[in-house]
Design a protein around this nucleic acid. Structure first.
Lengths: 346, 346
DNA sequence: AGCTCGTCTGAAAACGGTTTCAGAAATTGT
DNA sequence: ACAATTTCTGAAACCGTTTTCAGACGAGCT
């Protein structure tokens, strides 16, 4: 019932504990074969607790994300997992529910249990990365930057460029009245996607009313409300860039409820692809990025940071995004807003 | 740089190690206040490795799922996480990629690191649960049963009933030519959903050609291929029950590619809801179940099993499912199969 | 003051490994 | 065959905590 210890193995094999330990760690040892048999018979596995007590290493890595049900983070987890699967490290997963407070708790708990951490901070002004740095825990940030940027390894995507692609795609379709449903601006993706939207429009000398930027908080409900507000505007947009996947769902629901047609009445670009995007009617044009790769790369960087000298200068990698064009964008309606305005008045 | 130990705290507070330890575990101690200050100043956190070496408890729980990117399992993780978040236990997450071999590895690794395990076995004839039982690790099975059923706590859903609801819904719409895209039959959900389909049709004395059961292997691509085959049948079905979410995506893609109209040409019922289901055109009718609750309940059962006498008789709970009716089902077309058959010939 | 009793304390022994150290055995060279 | 190596071995110390054990201390009683 009680798991066998190294002492049991030593006894069974008729050697000393030290010999067993050495054999297990790879030293040449005369009784190798006998030890192997003993290990197999007893089904011995060394106690990670004892090992890490001695070595100071836990053999575990933490992965802290704001929302595991967001397909993007699920993909990141999978990517990260695919790297550790090869060898050596096991993953602690924690969910922070987008809360700084919860994240602090979680990090505080995990900090003693792991050799390194992959973290997607809940917000940009969040003390966790600093705490990890103080504790000397190797850390790689995913998708979001830390207050004291440059001090951490970070795996980002080109949020600004993604927004630019989206807006330019819309512009090339002839739109000028382009709105956006933005995420939380104190997060890296929220901030840069919004800046990309603004900078691109500015580059084309297009000025838009402030109501064309609607805060959706990265939540489905926020996307829904924002789209409702946009469509209720006296002079509504002809195209909308929605800054993430969950808000897109909400936005499309609003569109459906009101009866606006895509892309005839309104063109839509989302951020982050999903298998469902293809079977929507019309299929959704999105900004796509390598999600699993982002997780995998972050994990690789963490592992290397854990092995190599941890004083190495920190790396900040930015992954490319691309526009996946489907059918949710078209030219703006020739007849001005009459029909749509009526629909929005429901 | 090195994390402080209990000895450092003792020194700082001017007491012995034992006193610090006792205070931390809740004993009355004279130097309480001084110890608290020392702990705070040093930012001391007890080493989990040392604690678990002494106590034999790790304070961790494993959660092993076949595919974290499946929204159902993501929801399960979230549900489970919401329970442990309250107190004491941290979660190891592992992904088995639906592979028995990988699952064995993962379980073998985790078995020494956790006090209990939540497991969704990759298949029904899978040695892992037995291995866990042998090792005396409290285990709760999620969504899938183990070979030696009845010996494990298990949290299932009413797969058979769900399939019945789906088929009866289709029958009540006037369909008789009802096909199914089935999952892997060596998994609990796959098996029972298929049986539910068969039993319900049998109960209504409906006999269908064997090609009306298409194996989709729970994968998107399988769903796609299966739907293609169904639509290419000389006498195709008027309705299809698709046995899980990922296959549904594939099936709908096939439908879209071929140009069949839902529900006019074909009615569809899926299994497991998703935010996207509502914004499809038409919105998808699905069998829905409490996903996060399933994870949360499983975790609660595991925790209780870990605390109470582990010889308590095992529980098998079956959660209710329900039909969420949207617009993907309607009466079968009056005109027989002409149009559809033509479309399917592409 | 002297005694008992109860409360609180520190030293020391675990827990299961790894690693150092010194010594034993095997190998090599002559 | 013997010394000089080299390789292998077991005893013991250690990692950071909890817990047992015995003893110190203070309070309460006569």
């Amino acid at each position: 019932m009680k798991p066998p210890t190294i002492t049991d193995v030593a006894q069974e094999a008729g050697v000393s504990v030290s010999t067993v330990s050495r054999h297990l760690r790879g030293d040449r040892v005369r009784a190798a074969e006998r030890i192997n048999r003993a290990v197999a018979r007893l089904r011995y596995r060394p106690s990670p607790a004892a090992q890490s007590l001695k070595s100071g290493k836990t053999g575990a890595v933490a992965l802290v994300v704001p929302d595991i049900t967001n397909p993007f983070f699920a993909a990141v987890v999978r990517g990260a997992e695919s790297i550790t699967a090869q060898g050596g490290h096991t993953i602690f997963l924690a969910n922070t529910d987008e809360s700084d407070a919860r994240e602090a708790e979680v990090v505080e708990d995990l900090i003693t249990r792991v050799d390194g951490m992959l973290l997607a901070p809940a917000s940009e002004n969040n003390p966790s990365p600093q705490r990890l740095a103080d504790a000397g825990v190797p850390t790689v940030l995913i998708d979001r930057e830390a207050p004291s940027t440059g001090r951490f390894d970070t795996v980002l995507i080109d949020n600004h460029g993604g927004a630019r692609f989206a807006i330019e795609h819309l512009l090339s379709n002839g739109h000028e009245r382009i709105a956006t449903i933005a995420g939380t601006v104190d997060s890296t993706p929220g901030r840069f996607r919004l800046e990309g939207y603004r900078d691109t429009l500015a580059a084309y000398s297009i000025e838009l009313p402030p109501e064309f930027v609607q805060p959706g908080g990265f939540k489905e409900h926020g996307g829904y409300q924002s789209m409702l507000r946009l469509l209720a505007l006296p002079d509504p947009p002809t195209a909308v860039f929605v800054a993430n996947n969950t808000m897109t769902i909400g936005a499309l629901r609003a569109i459906k409820d009101i009866g606006v047609r895509v892309p005839d009445d309104l063109s839509v670009v989302g951020f982050d692809d999903h298998p469902f995007s293809e079977i929507l009617d019309p299929p959704l044009t999105v900004i796509d990025r390598p999600m699993e790769e982002q997780g995998a790369l972050a994990m690789r960087m963490l592992l290397s940071r854990m092995n190599n000298d941890s004083s190495r200068i920190s790396r900040r990698v930015v992954l490319d995004v691309r526009l996946t064009e489907r059918a949710s964008c078209g030219p703006p309606r020739n007849t001005p807003m009459g029909a749509r305005r009526k629909a929005a008045r429901i």
